[in-house]
């Protein structure tokens, strides 16, 4: 029986096998370097991490946050609605390693920066269920007990060739890993000069309160409030991370606008992705007269 030469010649076989492996490797892994992270990818405003943010990013890596959270938004309608603008290559040029992840046991974090105030992150990191009652995220309270090493962080900045001021390094003294990871969270997605929070594809469908004196809508609004608002404004509107919501203090149209569009400067996220009907239900719940 005749058999091909390579079946009897191991060296020839190894060379052929290596060649077979290298073709796809060169085309799909080596060649893309000619396109990626070039001038064409560059996005104005994308800056390297500062020392505190870098220290936070390393805490994120050490704790394996990428096992449950992704950092890339796909150009799909529901995804842009939920997380914000889809991700572009130029946003990641400073990321060594990338942290795109492969599973969303928790939500995507590519646009988390600026969505919530710092206080929200401190509390959520320490006791996630205090803000999101049925969350399965582990508690990371211990990060508050661990300091950042300024000298070690400076070495990291040097290895990555990120620019920094001496004062920034000195300023790390007394900072904890919790400070660092919150700073990192707030950096994510903020360099992009586009709307970072989820926005509706259309303006509010309902511009006027459709649920005045509707007890069922108030009840539904209560359930929505418990899920989305109570973490910051308290179970009985008494306030916490966010201000107390005294029914007398608001006009319904203004309240709708704030919930629907958010107050980016004040740390209030936009809830437009819930749709205007549900936002109106929350408005009616907050404004409903209640005896204490």
């Amino acid at each position: 029986m005749s058999s091909p030469a390579w079946e009897n010649k191991p060296v020839l076989f190894l060379l052929l096998a290596t060649a077979a492996i290298l073709v796809g490797t060169i085309v799909t892994m080596v060649l893309p370097f000619a396109w990626v992270n070039t001038e064409a990818d560059r996005i104005e405003g994308v800056t390297p991490y500062n020392p505190l943010e870098l220290a936070g990013r390393d805490v994120y890596i050490r704790e394996g946050c990428n096992n449950c959270h992704t950092q890339t938004v796909r150009p799909l309608v529901a995804e842009v609605l939920r997380y914000g603008e889809y991700s572009r290559s130029g946003e990641f040029v400073h990321d060594r390693p990338h942290l795109w992840g492969s599973r969303r046991t928790g939500p995507d974090l590519a646009r988390i920066g600026g969505k919530y105030p710092d206080a929200w992150h401190y509390q959520h990191m320490a006791v996630p269920t205090s803000i999101v009652p049925r969350s399965n995220m582990p508690a990371y309270a211990f990060l508050s007990d661990r300091g950042i090493d300024p000298e070690y962080t400076r070495r990291k900045m040097d290895v990555l060739r990120f620019p920094y001021e001496v004062e920034q390094i000195a300023g790390l003294r007394g900072k904890t890993e919790m400070d660092a990871i919150v700073a990192y969270m707030q950096k994510l997605g903020r360099d992009l000069p586009v709307q970072r929070t989820a926005q509706p594809v259309t303006p509010p469908a309902i511009a006027e309160n459709p649920f005045r004196n509707d007890a069922a809508a108030v009840a539904e609004g209560g359930a929505l409030y418990a899920q989305h608002c109570a973490g910051c404004h308290g179970a009985s509107l008494e306030g916490g991370i966010g201000p107390a919501l005294s029914p007398s203090g608001f006009d319904e149209d203004m309240l709708f606008e704030v919930i629907y569009g958010g107050l980016p400067e004040g740390g209030m996220p936009a809830y437009a992705s819930l749709g205007s009907a549900r936002v109106w239900k929350m408005v009616n719940f907050i404004l409903a007269p209640r005896g204490i």
Binding site: N37, V93, R96, P97, H98, V159
Partner: peptide
């Protein structure tokens, strides 16, 4: 730190 950055690294 990875020798590759961002999209290349991925």
């Amino acid at each position: 730190y990875s020798a590759y950055a961002g999209t290349n690294d991925a």
